[in-house]
Design a protein around this nucleic acid. Structure first.
Lengths: 218, 218
DNA sequence: CGTAACTTTGAAGCGGCTCAACGGATGTGG
DNA sequence: CCACATCCGTTGAGCCGCTTCAAAGTTACG
């Protein structure tokens, strides 16, 4: 989906496969790329085929807020990028496909609604949830998006594309607080992970209760 | 815009003028009403003619997050209310007019973009700004929306429809913290108010710098 | 190995929250 | 008219959850 591709992290390995299919307008994006829509995609909606994108926004002094994490099937609205309201970045090899304003009208409409709904849920999280509630919410959200075909329904397992500091910037916390919450959940058997980037939800309903603020804070 | 109108605060005076103009679909809403769109407005976009609405969302235990504050000209998307993603409430006598999906297509598109952009800015505020930065941002936003014709450009004056606890729920703070910030700004001459619901911005650029995190925290 | 990047863990500090008291404004009834 | 209640805002004191700072542990990769 890129006209210009800017390596965002200085040291991250950089690779790009820019496949332009004749009928479907589709492109591949390498990890750690900042997405810059080509001019003709200025107001387009693009669907993630596979991979993972984060959408973020920053204060002048560099404090960052990650606004959303997009997995397979989610839709990114390029107007947000072109108007300077946000930046999008790939966290792994990611495939995006341009939706057609007319053919995919319903899908676009639905995606717009979902984006707004998620923004509202996220505001509730940022403004009113405790750190443990935030982390629990994030894990369940990521499981929904990225555990499509791995693990069971009640014990989903997924690749965590975000690093601790990215989780922190998503949740309005510090990376240390995120790490402590995750270790805590692990100790309690609510989740499991050996590698830091591979998570398994072990007690989904318990996590759900925590995420919704219904669990005693012990 | 209401089919059923539910008095939300128990003690607030209740009055309603339900004007249904023949051509323009337009209605009046009394203060402190929870807005419930009539069935035929299920997915409509409605523009605020005058008045003030808040859009909010809650956790099961009652913690509330105010998601947006809408003044004259702003557009509310009813689908957010009908899907249970949010509630809307009037803070004063408020006039709303249904936009036409076809005639007002461009206006709706623009409003959608604005809503999303504001949600993003709000997330940045909630997740990454300090209390003083939050309050400064809120004051400037409200000045932009509600000081249309009062005060000067650099010294806007406006009616503050939100109470301290509503400001707090908007900014992810407590009402005490909001009160302390406002008193602090007043003491420093950045703002002025005698009645608690009538604000004047006195040092717009200084407030702007604070809002953007560019001011020393002294 | 050795370095770099990321994570974990600990200890200390602080910003915003909680709890509490007071003050001003408005309304109501005697 | 005053006594009293209610609601909202302000202010203070103490505390706690998260951040900050620091150091050690882990993983990946040359």
């Amino acid at each position: 989906m890129l006209e210009h591709i800017e390596p965002a992290g200085g040291s991250v390995p950089f690779r790009l496969t820019n496949t332009q299919a004749p009928l479907r307008q589709e492109r591949w994006v390498a990890p750690q790329m900042t997405l810059v829509p080509p001019v003709q995609w200025r107001d387009a909606a693009v669907r993630i085929g596979r991979g993972c994108l984060i959408v973020s926004h920053e204060l002048p002094d560099g404090r960052r807020q990650i606004l959303d994490v997009l997995g397979q099937g989610r839709v990114l609205f390029c107007s947000m990028l072109t108007h300077g309201t946000a930046k999008a970045r790939s966290l792994t090899f990611t495939n995006v496909e341009r939706l057609d304003e007319h053919c995919d009208r319903d899908a676009i409409e639905e995606a717009r609604h979902l984006a707004m709904k998620r923004a509202y849920e996220h505001a509730l999280l940022l403004g009113r949830k405790k750190s443990t509630e935030k982390v629990a919410t994030a894990l369940l959200d990521l499981a929904d998006q990225f555990a499509r075909n791995t693990g069971t329904q009640m014990r989903p397992s997924f690749t965590l594309y975000l690093m601790r500091n990215e989780l922190a910037d998503w949740l309005g916390l510090t990376l240390e607080t995120v790490s402590r919450c995750l270790s805590d959940f692990k100790r309690k058997g609510l989740i499991a992970f050996d590698r830091t980037d591979r998570m398994t939800i072990r007690e989904k309903t318990a996590l759900r209760a925590i995420a919704d603020g219904l669990a005693p804070s012990t």
